[in-house]
Design a protein around this nucleic acid. Structure first.
Lengths: 333, 333
DNA sequence: CCGAGGTAAGTAATCGTTTAACCAGAGCGG
DNA sequence: CCGCTCTGGTTAAACGATTACTTACCTCGG
């Protein structure tokens, strides 16, 4: 592997000059510059980023910890974050925690050892105590999806209350009075926010809330399917279902399908997140779309502002607004 | 940031000893070992992987280039590859080429600069000429999904012929005589293999092949939807559809849905790949499942065998067998 | 004609590890 | 008691870049 020294030698200059040509960090006479460039070409020289990183202590790398990138919601984030990072010259190390705290801690360790410049996290189990040591090694952290209350790190969150409100309100507008909800585990803050959003919408519409219509799911298709089935099999079933994510909504579609219900007419179904497939299932699924590209770009920005020292001190939380996408599953045929 | 020198100083030993304790690379007396470990703990020392990489020229990192990790099929590979890599202590740098050759080349450059130990690629546009220079810098490459004929790098492929044969045969067994196919772009070798598999099955069953039942899709939901619609609207429509991937099959489900056809009874539909959602759509979709975990693990193995020098020289192609997963979409209710 | 200032280069220290080469002392056979 | 082999340790040279510091030369005003 050819090094900067080889280039310098061939060009008959010092390594300093080569470096300066490489990084445009000092004027170099046209004569020498030409010789250096020529040498680089003939030797097919590629600077060693590892050596550079060691010297300037900056790796142009960020870590991304997600529970499971196979799930469409995380996959979308992974793509958008990678895209945003790559646009500013950063690479992304992907880490699947598989929902296990132990794995997250292991990855945290690896990433710190790798001296990543920053870290983006989607996690339900990591707590501030786990993150503090990371920050102390001045690798900034951006939290995605959920704001950990009053923390020392930045976060990017969705206005979940508003999203859920919009979903419920949309159903109400379509004439629904009995709305079944398939929530997620209530330990998660975002679940609580969404529940509150639904309650508020029902309130504003003057609809009494029936607790039996609120089922606790697990954000997976299986639970969406089963809980939707239970709701539909009630003596006085809801006329619409709001699943707290698209995957559960897709499960709900199936429950309706098996009961021969025409989704959109006999039963309204809406999901949450806006994963790509919602547009293509049968029938196309209404959803509350998260602006993941914007949120990803924001996450990268916050990170880089800290990396570059443009911002430090108190943490910031950026809140984004979701967007209702109404499709056949709530609009009828 | 505390370094190995700090630890050595605090423990009253040389850095060499600390290093040997760290890596178990030479016997160290219990006395010194204890002092070193204690020093590491009190200083909260984490070895700098960048420095280590520079010294031993090995980064314990591999690059993964995929077209778009948001698509479920690639997302699944990303997860399985990351999992397999992480099990042997490697990290994965994720790269979304967004289907563009220019991006792929840019990433190739980045990854080489980063001195990744190896590279796993899923790409339709990269050609051997692009890869040769990579290999010359002894970063082994494993190709996924498609074997580039007689190349100097290893590849992991699916037995596409067999998979398509099984899919078609399954439909034939269920009594179908007119089978519509929604293929992918025929430039891709895997598409050709699958077409051949279908032909073979029809042949073996003594069914004449109707060219008009073969439509060229783009491996996206949209094309699955449209082409399935065209097929179903024929004067003598097929009684079953075989889409060359699950996403297109999901589009086909919708086309059937809109025509009021009961999938599984009036029309059979089968996909390819075995993405997670197939089990949860309405109705659950039959598919040909790729053993992605095994294939990912194999990719990592091949890579590491070259990294460690256990294997070099002629390239190997590992072929995996897919598995038919029959669900309601071809089995009826 | 001298010295200040500017320009374009080179020298060498440094980043934090690993590891080859060296060394001191202990044990031991002859 | 000499010389040999172990054992457990240290010293210092890499790895491949960046960059503070130095140097050589040139120009130009006084």
């Amino acid at each position: 592997m050819t090094t900067i020294r080889d280039v310098a030698q061939l060009a008959g200059v010092s390594t300093a000059t080569v470096s300066h040509v490489l990084n445009d960090t000092r004027v170099v006479s046209d004569d020498l510059r030409g010789r250096v460039v020529a040498a680089m070409v003939t030797l097919n020289y590629r600077p060693n980023a590892v050596a550079r990183s060691l010297r300037v202590s900056e790796t142009l790398t960020i870590g991304l910890i997600v529970p499971d990138v196979e799930l469409p919601f995380f996959a979308r984030y992974a793509r958008d974050i990678e895209t945003a990072a790559s646009e500013v010259g950063y690479n992304v190390i992907l880490c699947n925690s598989n929902w296990a705290l132990a794995n997250e801690l292991r990855y945290l360790d690896h990433l710190l050892a790798r001296r990543v410049d920053g870290l983006i996290c989607i996690s339900v189990s990591l707590t501030p105590e786990h993150i503090i040591p990371v920050l102390r090694r001045n690798a900034p952290v951006v939290w995605l999806e959920e704001s950990r209350i009053g923390q020392s790190f930045d976060s990017i969150v969705l206005d979940n209350h508003r999203g859920a409100y919009d979903a419920a309100w949309h159903l109400i507008e379509r004439g629904h009075r009995r709305i079944g909800c398939i929530t997620g585990p209530i330990v998660a803050q975002l679940t609580g926010d969404r529940i509150a959003g639904v309650r508020q919408a029902l309130n504003d519409a003057g609809i009494a809330h029936d607790e039996r219509l609120m089922m606790i799911g697990a954000y997976d298709a299986e639970s969406g399917y089963h809980l939707a089935g239970q709701l539909l099999d009630l003596a006085d079933p809801p006329t619409a279902l709001f699943a707290f994510n698209d995957i559960m909504a897709i499960g709900a579609l199936r429950a309706a399908y098996e009961r021969g219900l025409r989704v959109g007419q006999q039963i309204g179904i809406i999901g949450f997140d806006g994963i790509g497939l919602t547009a293509h299932v049968s029938p196309p699924l209404s959803t509350i779309e998260q602006p993941t590209p914007a949120m990803s770009a924001a996450a990268i920005s916050l990170l880089l502002e800290r990396v570059s020292g443009q911002h430090h001190g108190e943490s910031r939380t950026l809140r984004f607004q979701p967007r209702l996408v109404a499709r056949e599953s709530t609009l009828g045929a």
